[in-house]
Structures are given as structure tokens and as C-alpha cells.
Design a binder for these strands. Structure first.
Lengths: 303, 303
DNA sequence: TTCTTAATTCCAATAAATGGAATACTGATA
DNA sequence: TATCAGTATTCCATTTATTGGAATTAAGAA
């Protein structure tokens, strides 16, 4: 028996009992175990703890003193484990690190977690917006949100929503340059392009079954929202995530075009690192996020 | 791994290291063990303790806080075991319960342990004088002293000295009634008898190869020293333990008779309960006692 | 890209804990 | 006085846990 804490626990309990048998019953074990544990503790301390006959046990003077000294550490250690395991009041206490792309994070994650902040005020949300996927380990990330395929298999990922890509422009722009009817028509229209921060290359536009690299974009940025702003300004056609454009389409500020060529929607993943236990607060945020993303009201995927 | 203390110890050590491998080396174990222990602790707490990749480990925010909280209990528990194990200064601190017959205890044990009390002032000697052997368990006895055979085998006993039995009387009494030349002569002399407290019967005198029950003792007591006092008073012949009479013989206050029939000396045992560990102070007293009893100066066995 | 090193998992060997049966013993009772 | 009931302890076989080597996976450097 090498578990010092258990040894102490057994000793402390036994000290309150009239026999080893009682102690065994209270601890849900056998008298043999008690006998062995007390003996082991005695050997470790080099002192007798109980005078014992078959009819009675009596704590030693040393044992009584040791019991007094042991009580505090026992209690402290128990507190350490009990207290660290969150109880109702602070079940959700602690930090939850979230990483998300700027586009999703600023406009949607924030509103989504608002009820959560009210419901669990003990919970500190640390939302880091970054489009590059550098959050593998060092960054203290509990939950990640990404649009598109996840290459890393160390995550447990859940597809929470679908993100259609829509080619949009302002009604004015469409009136000026005409509405494209085929993808090939885009060649003659002003279009935007987005630069992949990692590779430095311009992302090709996606369509149903094929891709189309804008040959001569009129505006290029590495930031989706900046690109979107260019579209809103009426400068260019852009292929933009549905959740960004749908509110504007509904208000008539943007019009979608080439809808029959719309590509399969991109998956939106909510994921978390696979290893280690999942604290309740993290699970709570994770569940809240996935539920909220599935809510068409909060996260529109259709016009 | 159920040893919470070890878990904490591993965690605390690892928190100071740059890798699990380092921690394993410091703790004299393998990286597997570290990995498993940290994982186990994480599972018990429901929280991640280290962010870790193959190249670096980084303690979690929760881990850092937990480390702070854990430090005190770890230290306390270590103190409990370290401190309770006596260190130089108070190696001999604590109580030593000794039981001895009145005759031996009052006159000889006290002087024998005198140097010990000076040498180990931390040590509390609790000397209980009782002739009956009732000190089996409840009485907090660490060391016992008995003259004669020990029936109980639960003791580890050491024969520390021999106690010859001598038939003595005052020179005056011998002059008055004549010196006995044969054991049978005792029938016509005044003799003492000692009552066994347990059985209530009078002990027979012992001689070399036979015993002799005093047929008509002139004085009887259940206390050896009272009996001895009667002899000193010149009332009777008595068969008395050598260590009591020798000083008086040397001063000429008593004379031994019938020496050629002297029985084999009784063994004097120093013993201690077999079970449980032997604290240094008990061993110290035990050794001091056995050594002292073997010292002819302190415990005379020959005239 | 490949190479090196670390964390982790798997698995078989080793070590430890467990509880039933037997033993030894105490205190009480007939 | 002898027997009985109840307890601590030891022994031993079974079960359980721990350990470290080998293989796997991954991250950072060259």
C-alpha cells in the first residue's frame, strides 16, 4: 500500500472506530485492508499507532498526536480535489478560449454567445479572431470555428452549419454592367479576389462542379470583410459567404446572381482539441455554439 | 494510478520542467509514467493541466492556479511524514512505558535509566511497578522486565541477567538459632514465605535439583521487599534475590547460608511487545537496560 | 522535403492489492 | 474451569494495477 493519502484516510477513520472491523465497514473494505494499512503506516512512521488485541483497539499516545497533525493535511488535500472539481455555483467558472475567423467571429460569434454570458456570468470568454490556423497548441484555445475542410485530425469537429457562397453585387452595379448569365460572363465584369494569407495566391471562385479563377480582378484583399466592403460599395461582384450577404439581400442592398451555378455549401465546423477532459464550461459553450449556428434565425444560410 | 499524493508530486515537479522527459528524469521514472499521471490528474479534475505538443509543454491557466493551491497541501503532507519521522534533535522524543516488579524497579531500574535521562532529555520514562503480569495490551507498555520464565510468546525477550536466589539471614539470627547445614535443617529454623498474588499459594523455595515448601513459615507476605525487610529485621531466614541481598552481605549485615544447594539462577528478561515497529527511543532504552543489567557493578549477581 | 526528438499508445511482464480461509487470541459465559 | 463468540492477523491464490520496451504520431529544425 503506497498511497499515503489513503493510508491517512484509513488511519483517521479507524481512530474514530471501536474496532478495525467497524472501520472496514465504514470504509467499505475488509478488516485485512485496515490491518495492513495501519501496519504500513506504522512502518513508515516507525511508531505504533494502535495498541490492539482481538477485543479492542486503543490509539497510542503517538497515534493521537499524529492524528491531530494529520487532520489538517487530510482536509486540505480533500478540499483541493473537491474544490477544484467545480460545484453548481461555479460549474462554468473559468476561461474558454475561442478562435474564429474575423468574418464569422465579429459578426456572429459575439451575438451567439450573448445569452451564454448572461446565463453563466462566471465564465470568461476569450475570443481570438484570426484567419490563419496557427492555433494548434501554444495558444490556449478550447474551441475553434472554421469554414471549410479541417485537415487536422486531432480535433473533434462538429459540422454546425453550412455556408453557401453567393455571387453578389449592388443593384446599381448590376444595372450598370448587366447581370451575368453564365460564369464565363464574369470575365467582362468587375470582380473581387481574395488572397490566401498563407500561400499568397488568389482563391479561385467555386461553382457547381468546377472552379473559376478570376483572371483580372478589379479589387483584391486578404481580408474577407474588406472584400465584402468593396462589394457593398458597388465596385465589384464578389463571391461572399451567405451569412454575410443575406441580410443585405433581404434589404435589397445586394442582389445575388448566377444562382443556378452555386457551389455546394462549405461546412462550418465547431471543433475542440481532442486530448484532455472537457470541462463543463467548454462543453456548454461548444453546445451553445453548435446549436446557435444551426439556428436559421441567428445564422442565415438561405435568402 | 490512484495515489493522489504521488499524482500531485509528479504534477508539481513537471510544472517546473520543460518537458515530460525532464520531469521523468528528475523523478527517476519514465516519460510514460509522467504522461499517464498527468492524464489521470486531468481526468480527476476534469480540466487540462498542460498544453502539450511533442516539442514543448505549457501549463494551463487552470494548471497554474491548481499548482498554487496544491503546493501547500503537498508541503504539509510531506512535513507530516518527514517531521513525524524523528530527526537528530528529537530522535528519542516521546514516551517509553516500562513495567517492572517492585523489587527490581524501585531499587535498580531507576538508577539504570538515570544516564539515559540525562543523555536523552526529550525522552519521557513512564515506569509502572507491578508484580502481576497484567500489562498485556491496554497498558501502554513498551518495555517489560520480569524475573523467571515468560510464558507469553508474543514478546521478543532478551535474557539480560541472572538472578541467583540466596538463603540469607542476619548474623544475629544465625548466631541465635545456628547455621543450617542441610536444607532439611530449615524445618527447625524460622523462615519466611511468599504468597503468589495470582494463585494465593506459597511459593516453594528452590534448590539445586529440588524444591522445598516451607512447612511452617514464621512470616509471610505477598511483597518480596516486605519479606526482605523481615529478613533484615532478623526475624527469619529468607530465600531472596541476589541483587537485593548482595549489598547487605558485603556490609556484613546479612550472611548467606546453604550456598552449596543454591538453585540455578533465575533469568531476568527484558522484553517488548513483538508487533509494530520499534521507535529509536524504545530501542535505546531497551539496549541501555539490557547493557546495564549485564553490568556486575550496577546489577550484582555474585557476592 | 527529411531528420531528430518528444509525447503517447499498445502490450506483455511485473508488482501490488484484495478477499476467502485458516490461525491465534481475548474476554465472557455456562 | 472449559467452552464460546468475536476479532485481528497471516497465508495464499486471484484479481487488479503499474511498469517499461517497442511502435506510433507529431512538431520543429535542417
Amino acid at each position: 500500500m503506497h498511497d499515503r493519502f489513503r493510508l491517512l484516510k484509513i488511519f483517521a477513520t479507524t481512530a474514530q472506530c471501536t474496532s478495525f472491523r467497524d472501520a472496514a465497514f465504514q470504509l467499505g473494505t475488509s478488516p485485512q485492508t485496515i490491518s495492513r494499512a495501519v501496519k504500513e503506516l506504522e512502518d513508515q512512521l516507525g511508531e505504533l499507532l494502535f495498541h490492539r488485541s482481538t477485543r479492542q483497539i486503543q490509539i497510542t499516545q503517538f497515534g493521537a498526536r499524529f492524528l491531530q497533525e494529520a487532520n489538517s493535511p487530510i482536509a486540505e488535500l480533500e478540499m483541493l480535489f473537491e474544490h477544484s472539481r467545480p460545484s453548481r455555483a461555479e460549474l462554468y467558472a473559468g476561461r474558454v478560449g475561442i478562435t474564429a475567423p474575423h468574418s464569422v467571429g465579429r459578426s456572429h460569434v459575439l451575438p451567439l454567445i450573448e445569452p451564454l454570458i448572461r446565463e453563466a456570468p462566471e465564465c470568461l470568454i476569450d475570443l481570438r479572431l484570426e484567419d490563419e490556423v496557427t492555433d494548434t497548441v501554444g495558444a490556449q484555445i478550447d474551441i475553434g470555428i472554421r469554414v471549410g475542410a479541417l485537415r487536422d485530425n486531432r480535433f473533434v469537429a462538429r459540422q454546425a452549419a453550412q455556408v453557401p457562397l453567393m455571387v453578389v453585387a449592388t443593384p446599381e452595379l448590376v444595372r450598370q454592367v448587366g447581370e451575368p448569365r453564365l460564369v464565363a460572363d464574369l470575365i467582362r465584369k468587375p470582380v473581387s479576389g481574395r488572397v490566401d494569407r498563407n500561400s499568397g495566391r488568389i482563391w479561385p471562385w467555386r461553382f457547381n462542379g468546377f472552379t473559376h479563377a478570376p483572371p483580372s480582378p478589379r479589387f483584391v484583399s486578404d481580408d474577407p470583410e474588406t472584400e465584402f466592403q468593396a462589394v457593398l460599395n458597388g465596385w465589384v461582384f464578389g463571391q461572399i459567404a451567405a451569412f454575410l450577404v443575406i441580410p443585405y439581400i433581404r434589404e435589397g442592398l445586394l442582389v445575388p446572381v448566377l444562382r443556378q451555378f452555386e457551389p455546394p455549401p462549405l461546412p462550418l465546423y465547431v471543433y475542440r482539441p481532442q486530448r484532455g477532459p472537457v470541462p463543463p464550461r467548454v462543453r456548454k459553450v461548444f453546445d451553445t455554439l453548435t446549436e446557435s449556428f444551426a439556428d436559421e434565425e441567428r445564422f442565415p444560410t438561405r435568402v
